[in-house]
Each structure stands twice: as C-alpha cells, then as structure tokens.
Design a protein around this nucleic acid. Structure first.
Lengths: 351, 351
DNA sequence: AGGTACTGTGGGAGCGCTCCCACCGGTGAT
DNA sequence: ATCACCGGTGGGAGCGCTCCCACAGTACCT
C-alpha cells in the first residue's frame, strides 16, 4: 500500500547523501572523508565519521567504480590449468606473498585460471570489460599473446618472470643466473670436477639464464667449456630421467649434476640409481626451487631457493604503483620497473 | 588544445548509446538484445548484434551493477587459512565442480579465505558492501556466526555441510550416514567381528552422522552396542594415532577399524604398525574421503568416496536458483533446498 | 585599503547502464 | 467501424558515487 515502488530498497542501505544529511555537511565533504582526503577540517571529519558509524554506512562499490572509472580489484592470472596451480607450491607461495602485500589495501584480489581455450576467451572478455585495474601475470611462456592484449587494452600489468631480456613489461624475477652460479660454485667447492647440467624448457627465459650462470661459474673457475655436459630437459621428472641417462652415456665419469628444477633432479636421481651411481658419493646432485620434493627426497636434495613470497609482495608493489600512475602507454622508462631478487643455496646431503 | 576535458576517455570504449546509434535503434532495444530478452524482433536483434560486433562493444559491469543492483559475482568462502585450502584435495575438487557449473554462466567466482580475525573483518565489510550476489560456504563449524551474518544481510547462501539436522540454509551434503554404513557393512562382510570407529571432530555434524551410520550398521547386523569401540578423533593424523593406541589398549583383539577420514586412518595405521599389527591380516582399515593419501598409503586404503565435484556443481545450481528468486527472508520451504548425495566405497587392499 | 592566495566546503554534472512507462501500429473480437 | 489488446520499440528517470568548479572565509602580503 504505502509502497513507494522503489527498486532495491530492501535493506535501506544508507547512501552518501544520507550520511551527509546526518552529519550536516555536503556530499562532497563526506566523499572526501571516506577517501581520506587531507583537505577536511578535523571537526568536520569527526562529525562525518560519527554519522558513518551510526548509520553503518558502507560505500557502494559499483557506484564508485562507475563514477571513478576504477574497480579496486586486480587479477592474478595463471595461464595454467587449475590442477597445476594446486600441485605446485610455487603458486601457493606466490599467492601468500600477494595476499600479504594486499592485506592492508582496499584492493581485492581475483584469481583467474586461463588454462584452456575456453578460459582464455573468457579472460579476454573479462579484461576487455576492464573489470580489474591491473593484472599479475605468472608463469607466462615466451609466445603468449596475453601481454600484448593487456598492452593494447592499456591495463597495467606486472610479469613474474620476464619473457626475454627485452621484456617491456614491469617484472619481478629471481636471480636465475646468480642462483645457477651458486649451485655450480658449491659443487666445485666440494671438489667436484665434471659438473653436468640438465636444463629447463628452453623457451623459458629463466632456464636460459640458468644455463648462462652454469657456464659462467665453470669458466670463471678455469674449466674449459664442454657443451656436451649440457643436456636439455623440460622441467618434468621424465625429462630429467632421460637427460640424465643421456649424460651418463656420454660422460660415464661425471661427478656432479646441476638440474634446473627439483622435479628434474628427482628424475635424474632415478636414472642415477638405475645406473648404480650413489648420491652423493659417486655423483653430487643439486636442484632448483627448494620445493617439498627437495626436502623429502632420499637423500635430501641440495637446492636453490627463490624468494617466491617476496616476489609476490614486490609484484604487488610494482603493480600498485603502475595503477596509481595510470599513465597509458608505458611512458616512464623501466628504471625501477624490473627487479631481480637474490636466491639462496640450501645445502643438504645430496651434494 | 582540442581536449574536451572528458574523463576516462582513454580508449574510447563504446557505450550502449553508441551501439544504439549505430544500429539505428533506441538504448532500450540494445539493452534487451544484450540481456537476451525475447521481446525483440529478429531483424532488430540481428542489426544490434552486428553493431555490437563492429564496435567491439563490451558492457560496463559497474554501470550494470549500479543500475540493476546486482553484481553477477558469487563468492566461495573458505573459513580456513589458505594453507589448508592448498593441502586438502577436498577444496580443489570442490573448486573444480563449482568452476565447471559456472563456466556456462556470466557469473564470476571469487575465492575468499577467512581464516584469521583480520580476514573475517574484511569479509564482513565485503559482504556488507554487497559485492557478491550470493555465497557458497564450505567447511563451516557449528558455532560459526557467518551464516547469521549472511541471513541478516539477506544474501543468498548455500552451505556444503549442514551445521546440524536443523540447518536453515539450503545445503548440499554427501550421505555421511550411508557412507559410514557402507564402510562398516563392508568390513562385516569380510568376516570382521570387532569393528572399532575413530570419529571426526564431534562439533562437525557430518562426523556425528558417520557415528550414527557406524552404530546402525552394527546393530542391524545383530551386534550389541559397545560404545567403548568408539574413540573420538579430530580428523588429524596425530589424533588418529592417539585414538588407535587407546583402542588397542582397550580392545587388543579388535580386527577392524573405520576411521572418519583418510588422514585419521594414516595416523591409525602408524599406531597399528607400532603395535605390531599387520594390515589387513590382523586389522582391516577403512578411511573416508578417498583422497590421494588413500591411494598412496601402504597398503592402499579402502575408503569412502564423496562426490565432491558433484557437490560443488549442485551447490551452484541451488545458489543460482536462490539468487534468481531473490526473495528476501527465506520464504519458500526447504523442500528441494537440502540435498544429500550418495557416497561410494572404494575397495583397496587395506580391508 | 585592496589585492592575492590559500583552506575548506557545497553541489551540479555526469559515469553507463536498467527499468519502466508511454506509445505505435497491427490484429481480432464486438 | 470501434475498441481492447499485444508485440515491439524509444527514451526519461534514476542507481550512488566522484570530479570539479564555484565560492565563502581567513590570512598575509603590498
């Protein structure tokens, strides 16, 4: 009967206008208080805050997004099927860092899997609708078109591992070159002389950098370059097994192996066992990632740890700056926009 | 110079209005086409669709949310720290089902962890802002205030395991009672006579139902009730170990154990080993969840599988109906709003 | 005294949609 | 011929904010 016929009036959620009336000020002033503008007198601010508390006012995000043309949300895009996301500790560590860095922010984090084609299309639509202010990209392959799409849409993005040395996007990476050096130098310092390397996927920039680090450590120590000690892998266990078998055939007397990932090392370990080699007595083994696998391997695996959580935190820092600056078309130089974090060698009994 | 001074005009994203002009129709008509209303002639629809394609029009979500008072997003709320989410396959399976059910929808899924106090407050704020149209609640304890908050805010919600037999929220559950019966009947059919039970956390309704099922299977088979064969656990490995030890002390000659979870069974297995009991020769063991643990245990563990993915799918179905109906204050009865899905016994060599 | 420069404030305009009412012309009943 | 009705359509009003311009008041120069 008395119905006004108004829509959505269900709970009677208070609006900015109502808060303003209650506090005896104008709409603009309330908006300023809500958004923490300094250009408000203390007395007014207090009055507004009181009104907000009394009314239980909560800003309407949709209205804000529409008027201000921002969403206060960012997406963590994982171009992998969900399965990998759950099985690899890399992602959960990253998520932890990202979550921590975001926790004292108003920013909302969205987790988006874009493994299959269907999901890719959905994602493209999603980004085209500008439903996020920025994007965090992890585990991107060299030929992924996603970064270009983001650039075209002018959506700020930060990538977790640059796609190449010519990466144009702001990026955060761990020091793959240095990490590999550490690993090899460690092996050499333990008296090993014939150190082989099983690489990662060659289309991943980080894997290339690890090869570079491996080469540099050897040549710095005065070892001649022997490219036949390098065997390509693909970050998988099976790839590690195959590569190790090939290496053993070529170099029966090698006494150390640096594998580009812990999983690869696990495969290598298998092949070594099958060939009757003892670890570390006959062959020392070092992995990369310091994952759970490393700790649980028999014997426990020496591995290079990347500060993944820290990387997540830094990515957020970078992204939030990008978003705040919101300059279309990467205008500023890349001075402080590409960072590389140090790795750490975790020594266990496999070496 | 020529600047109009307009805000956000960066990319020149087309608006509804522009599409309407292009197609030579009114705004309302375009809106109708976009939203799939049937009250549009085929010719008009085609014209609009062409214009949409030519302009690359993508609806502005914020504007839609503001005008229509809905967000087209739902949240999966996990009242646990992220760690548990990643370590327990329960959640990833659930997520898979939910994702699948949502994939042919416009609905967006948000994943929200509300483990700590801080996160709880953030979540409350989030919900108060009505940033989602509905909520999926998993793994809620009996005394959690979250469901009440949701009811108060009139946000549709579906819960994955009812908190009690008097659950008021729509819910999807697996048949804990029937699953437990299956497990115990299986043990009895294998000739076991002294079947013990290690329970789950007693404040979890599902754990209670499993106890009921255990009791029913035994009494149906003509076994007198022996409450001393029931030992409380808490779903953890350590709890399982302790409970098993206690049981062995009380009943040295028991020949079977039904554990309320696979993790619990893993603990029980440990205690059995320490006591020199062989599995299944001396004592048969059955778990619950059919998780990876069950498959990898030595010996592989017989376990009760819950159709978790299916549960996720059903929860979405229920929730979407709730959201569509959008009746404030649960008006309809609960007829079709609480469903129970059948479980399946996966027999392996531990029994 | 008049000017200039701030600080703090109010409120109009507008963000891009949805909702709904009004309207138009064709159809069938009266 | 008149009326009621219905499928199809256009466009006004309004969702709750932010942005920005205008303006009052005060302070500090010349």
């Amino acid at each position: 009967m008395a119905s006004h016929g108004a829509r959505g009036r269900s709970g009677g959620r208070p609006t900015l206008e109502e808060v303003a009336a209650r506090a005896g000020v104008g709409r603009g002033t309330v908006s300023r208080v809500i958004n923490g503008s300094p250009r408000v007198s203390d007395a007014t601010r207090a009055a507004v805050e009181a009104a907000v508390a009394e009314l239980g006012y909560v800003p309407n995000t949709a209205a804000r997004a529409l008027a201000a043309n921002r969403t206060d949300a960012i997406a963590l895009v994982v171009p992998e099927p969900e399965t990998r996301f759950f099985s690899e500790p890399y992602f959960s560590d990253m998520l932890k860092g990202v979550g921590a860095a975001l926790s004292d922010t108003e920013m909302q984090l969205l987790l988006i899997f874009a493994g299959g084609d269907r999901e890719r299309r959905r994602l493209a639509q999603y980004l085209a609708a500008h439903r996020v202010d920025g994007v965090l990209l992890v585990s991107v392959h060299a030929d992924d078109p996603l970064p270009d799409l983001l650039a075209q849409l002018e959506i700020p993005a930060v990538i977790s591992g640059p796609r190449s040395s010519a990466e144009t996007l702001p990026s955060v990476d761990s020091d793959n070159y240095g990490g590999a050096r550490q690993a090899v130098e460690h092996l050499l310092s333990r008296g090993r002389r014939r150190v082989a390397h099983i690489t990662g996927r060659l289309d991943v920039y980080g894997a290339q950098r690890r090869i570079d680090g491996y080469r540099a450590a050897l040549s710095d120590a005065g070892h001649g370059a022997d490219e036949t000690l390098i065997e390509p892998g693909d970050f998988t266990e099976e790839g590690g097994r195959r590569a190790m078998a090939a290496l053993l055939e070529r170099h029966p007397y090698l006494d150390a192996v640096f594998a580009a990932s812990d999983v690869t090392a696990a495969g290598a370990r298998q092949a070594l066992r099958e060939a009757g080699r003892r670890i570390p007595d006959d062959v020392a083994l070092v992995g990369y990632d310091d994952s759970a696998i490393a700790r649980h391997m028999d014997p426990p695996l020496t591995s290079v740890r990347q500060p993944i959580e820290e990387m997540g935190r830094r990515m957020i820092d970078l992204l939030l700056t990008e978003v705040a600056d919101r300059r279309p078309l990467a205008s500023r130089g890349l001075e402080r926009r590409q960072m590389v974090l140090a790795t750490e060698l975790v020594s266990r009994s496999s070496s």
